[in-house]
Design a protein around this nucleic acid. Structure first.
Length: 281
DNA sequence: GGAATTACTGCTACAGCCTC
DNA sequence: GAGGCTGTAGCAGTAATTCC
């Protein structure tokens, strides 16, 4: 092969959203909508969300990047073998705003938001949450309709709905056959004491009382060790109206939540409690 | 029907990290 | 430092679709 630069300079200028809209497929719009709601996704998370192969996703994302509807960054130098993080670029933001009947955000604001995101210390946390849900989406896509991720609310929307009582990282509704489970996600990175993590359940108890319905909280944990140390605290702290489940990524070379993790672990979700679930029946 | 376009895959190369 | 691994990119080829 001839030696060519790994990345070619993008012909960007100021893309015209009207012209771009005709070049975007339904899948492209799904990616843009997801980025609009959830801010940032890695290459493999987008693969989980919308593609059957990583190679296809990489190729399409390069096209979307050159069109200027998405942007991408890596969160450290040297770049190394680190997947790109994709965000909604100004043209993509304008398209999604039009789709939702909202005014297009100023390009300077979109860029500033992307820079803040790339520099944010919460980026790994956000990617962890998004990775969990894209793994669920991948499981749903390959399930031949037997299961589906019916809702995926970001932290911001959860805060708007329930912020006075709880601050979950996300809310989701997962359907498996005819069974439907809504759950709040708490993404734990083992950066706080287990007691403090378990103390969050009090807020969910208040929410269950306020809403007059049981609530489900899933703790998404970085490792089986963390799960083993946190579960006793959860057992002690779990209020009657709160069903608690835990999940970890499956062990393996990839640290991101795998499809197997996302599909197997929800078996411990409420609705199908097991002896490991610290729920008071 | 043939050309052009689009989307995808296989193969290969490159860059950087990690382990020994 | 060598080799394996991961992630991305370029090229060639194929298949489906669209347009004239």
């Amino acid at each position: 092969m001839t030696s060519t630069p790994r990345t070619q300079p993008r012909q960007r200028g100021q893309p015209d959203p009207l012209r771009l809209m005709g070049r975007l497929s339904g899948r492209d719009r799904l990616i843009l909508r997801t980025l609009a709601d959830h801010h940032v996704l890695t290459t493999d998370q987008i693969t989980d969300l919308a593609f059957d192969s990583l190679r296809a996703a990489q190729q399409r994302l390069v096209v979307l990047d050159r069109l200027g509807v998405v942007g991408r960054f890596r969160d450290r130098l040297p770049a190394g073998s680190q997947p790109w993080r994709y965000y909604l670029a100004p043209a993509g933001a304008a398209i999604i705003a039009a789709e939702r009947g909202q005014p297009a955000p100023a390009p300077s604001k979109v860029r500033a938001r992307a820079i803040a995101l790339a520099a944010s210390q919460r980026l790994p946390h956000l990617l962890g949450v998004n990775g969990f849900f894209t793994a669920l989406a991948a499981a749903a896509r390959t399930s031949a309709g037997t299961c589906a991720l019916e809702q995926w609310w970001p932290e911001r929307r959860c805060a708007a709905e329930y912020g006075e009582l709880v601050r979950p990282d996300a809310y989701g509704v997962w359907r498996q056959h005819r069974r439907r489970v809504g759950f709040f996600l708490e993404h734990d990175q083992a950066t706080e004491p287990t007691a403090r993590a378990a103390a969050k359940l009090a807020g969910y108890a208040d929410l269950a009382i306020a809403e007059d319905t049981p609530v489900v909280v899933l703790f998404w944990l970085p490792s089986p060790d963390r799960e083993a140390s946190l579960r006793p605290e959860l057992e002690r702290a779990a209020p009657r109206a709160v069903t608690v489940a835990t999940a970890t990524p499956t062990p393996g070379p990839a640290s991101r939540p795998s499809v197997a993790a996302a599909t197997r672990r929800p078996a411990r979700l409420p609705g199908r409690p097991t002896t490991r679930t610290p729920t008071r029946q």
